[in-house]
Structure formats: C-alpha cells, structure tokens
Design a protein around this nucleic acid. Structure first.
Lengths: 242, 242
DNA sequence: AACTGTCTTTGACCACGGTCAATGTCAGCG
DNA sequence: CGCTGACATTGACCGTGGTCAAAGACAGTT
C-alpha cells in the first residue's frame, strides 16, 4: 500500500470544493471512493425545484455552490421559507418517508446527490458520519427555533436588521476581510420578495424598511442587490430594539 | 442464562411508564440495566426550570409524565415558546456546548435524567439508539419548521383553531375514545398566557378568539381549562381559512 | 432603440392584533 | 367569611404592517 494516496483516481470527491467542511469530511480517502461511486454531481439552475413537499424522499446530498431554500406552504398558497442552505450544507432526510418541505434553488447551484437508500447504508457503516449528521441536525433545529422567536416576536425593522447582519457575516466569511468597523459592501443572493418569504413579511415592507435604514444612514443601497453596511453598531442596535 | 429475564432486578427502567415509546425502547433488558445505573428519576414541579439558556449542557433525558416547554427570549425580554415536550419525548442535546433554550415544566412532571457525558457514551455503544435519536431530531426539526409557517403566516384564529385540534388529538390519544364526530371535552394543560407564548400572540387575543369560537358554536368552554370541540369540521376549516 | 418581463419603490388606505385599563371569576387560606 | 393573588374576559384605542395600485428601474432580446 505504498503510495496509497497517489493511486486514488482523480475523482470528483478528492477535488471537492467543500470536502473539508461537508459531512464527508469525516471519511478517509478509501471511504470516499466508496461514497463517490454512489453519488453524482448535478447542476440546478436558479428557480428550479429539486424536491416537492409530499414527494417520496429519494434524494439527499451536499450543496457545493449556490444557495437553496426550503419552503413550507399552507393549503391556500401562503408560503414561508423555513430554511436557507449554503455550500457544504447537507440536504434531505435519511430514514424519512415523504418530503415535508419543497427544496429549490435560489441561485444557480451545484449539488452532490446520493440516492437516499444508498446513503443510509453508508451512514450505517460510518458511525462517525452519522454522529456528525446528528450534530448538524441539532444545529439546524436550534437555528429553526431561534427563527421562530424572530418570526413571532420581532418587528419588521428588527427582522431586517438582523437578516442583513447575518448575510454580511456570511458574505464576509468568503471574502474574509478581517472584521473591522469600516463600511462593508456585498451582494444579497436574494430578491426583495425572497427576503420577505424568509422573514415572514411582504415585499413592500422589506422595501420600505430598507429605504428607512438608508435614510437613517445605517446602510447604503448602491443599486441592484448590493448593500453597504455603513454603521454596524447602529444596525445591531436596531436588530434588538425594544 | 435460563430464566434470564426473571433475574433482572425490579429496577426503575423495567416498570417505566414510557419504556416502549421512549428512546430506550431500542435497548434490550441487559442494556437497560447499564443505562439505569447512570440515570435517575426526578420530580419537577410546575413552573420550575430545569435548564437555563446559556448554561452548560449537562443533562439530558426522557420525560415520563407532564408537559415541558422550551422557551427562547430576546435580549429585551420578549419570549416565545419554541417547543412543547410530552411523555416519552427526549430532551437535552448530546454533543452540545451550551444550552440554547430555557427548559421548564408547564405542569408537575417526572423526568428520567442522565449526565450528558455518560449518555453520550451509551449512544456510542448503541448505534441503533443513536439512529433513533437522529430520526427524532429530524422529526423535531420538521415540526419546528412547520410551526415557523404557522407563526409567520397564519392569523390568530387559524393559529388557535389548529392548536386546539392538536391538543384534542393529543388528549384523545390517551383517553383514546375511537375517533368519532361527537363533541369531545378535555382539559388544556396550558393557561391562556402559555397558549399565547406558544402561538406568538397575546393573552387578550387568545381570549377573544376563544370566545369568538364559542359564539360561533365551534367549541364550548365549560370552565377552568376545559374545552369542548363541538364542530370539528368547522374548526378544521377555520384552521385553514384564507 | 424600442419592447418585454422582472424586480423595486412609493403612496393611500385600513384591518388585525397589540396595548392599556377595568372588571370578573375562582381557588386557596388566614 | 371575606381576603388575596392568579388567571380570564371585555372594552376602547391605535400602530404596525398588509393590501391594492401605480409608476420607476433595469437587464435581456430582437
């Protein structure tokens, strides 16, 4: 087994953009080959739906690039985005029957998908990976519960201020200019309508709150999807205002 | 090992009220003894708090009787109940650092608690149990997301109608008179204020909506915490009203 | 350039539900 | 018995944010 590592074919997993952050990071090279044989890459264009609520749960996998959303809907068509997924996040539900929420692409995305049944077998053989999935699921649960508080008890201004800070942190994590106070500019990956779906408000209220923040000097709106955080302090204060 | 079963001491696990429904149902008698040695029963009175948000996560366990609530709070004191726990439900978060939400007793309760670290070791030795926990956590996540939809997009009347149907189903599961259409009466385990905390509204709105439903003949309010579902059909319709 | 569709902004209006306040009900207890 | 405290109900008022409507900005296409 000399040069064992060098003998691994240059398959998709070994040059995976999210390998160290995704669930599969818990596997060694040999195990990755096995996993690779059941998975495949797939591109999904912005706006396309990957799985519909009510469908049988046949797929799961990792998000490689782009942003996905999970949407819940009432019988009469009202919608609420109940989760956003970013690169290295896992999607799908092992051991489930039907899918509960519609999964679709907010931007053009790249996925690494597995048949659910085959993935379950991998989980059974890799307790470490199953444990990581459990931890991630707990984290998602905590996040969902935190968002219940936001949806139920925060004002439109507080919701939006908090959302912008979240998005700034996430954008900063990639560009990663050290956390300093100066104004930061980034592009939102969501339209006003999609933001409204996430925060439980309407397009109009999102728009009005944004212009209010701009007028107060908290943010700038250079155009398009771009946002500038001009006064992070004040924005954070507004996110927790009484 | 003849009469193996008969030799098991009459410890707390073997006569546990929720044994077949709780997580430990995945263990055999021998394993139960091991688990039993690290767990202990505890009574918690109505209103008492078991763990505060921000504390180190030191405990987990199963609820034996009564109802628990998980509460999230904003920096300035607004509160939202983000989960209700019923007998046989698991609480706590293995592999976590700090507790994210305050856990307290809505009614007098009986718990079966384990030190978190010891429980984690049990999970490591019992993959089947860890898998059950994963499934439960997914279920909780789906429930939390479903409630995000309710909190963000449903009117006060819809929220309350849905809540009453939930509670009736849960009460019926115990009393278990076969699902028929006739009026059913049961006691809510929550005060108006606690219902408001769960549904993201105020005491006053809960009260007003209840009297409206009573006047419409959907329900009866015999007094105290009791509720009568007089017209389940109409109540279900109101839970999904446009 | 003009046309199209999508997204955004802004205004006018108003309803749902929150806030404040008073009163009612009931159990426990000195 | 009449307190007391917790919980519930009802009313009056009003603000936040939803609805409806119109106009503006912008990218892509022919």
């Amino acid at each position: 087994m000399l040069h064992g590592k060098a003998m691994i074919p240059n398959d998709v997993c070994t040059d995976c953009a999210v390998r160290d952050r995704a669930l599969c990071g818990s596997l060694d090279d040999r195990e990755l080959i096995a996993l690779n044989s059941i998975g495949q890459r797939r591109r999904v264009a912005r706006g396309q739906t990957i799985a519909w609520a009510g469908d049988e749960a046949v797929l799961c996998g990792n998000l490689l690039s782009g942003v996905l959303k999970l949407v819940a809907a009432t019988a009469n068509g009202r919608e609420q985005t109940v989760g956003l997924l970013y690169p290295a996040d896992f999607f799908g539900q092992p051991y489930a029957g039907d899918v509960d929420f519609t999964l679709s692409a907010l931007t053009d995305t790249e996925l690494c998908v597995f048949p659910r049944a085959a993935f379950e077998r991998v989980l059974e053989d890799h307790q470490r990976m199953e444990r990581l999935l459990l931890q991630r699921t707990f984290d998602s649960l905590n996040e969902a519960r935190g968002r219940m508080l936001v949806l139920a008890r925060k004002s439109a201004g507080e919701k939006l201020a908090g959302f912008l800070l979240d998005m700034a942190a996430r954008a900063g994590a990639s560009g990663c200019r050290a956390t300093r106070d100066g104004p930061v500019t980034f592009d939102l990956p969501l339209t006003r309508g999609q933001i409204a779906d996430v925060l439980g408000m309407t397009i109009e209220t999102v728009s009005r709150q944004l212009t209010r923040m701009k007028q107060s000097g908290l943010i700038g709106l250079p155009g398009g999807r771009a946002v500038t955080i001009s006064d992070r302090e004040a924005l954070a204060a507004r996110a927790e205002a009484a």
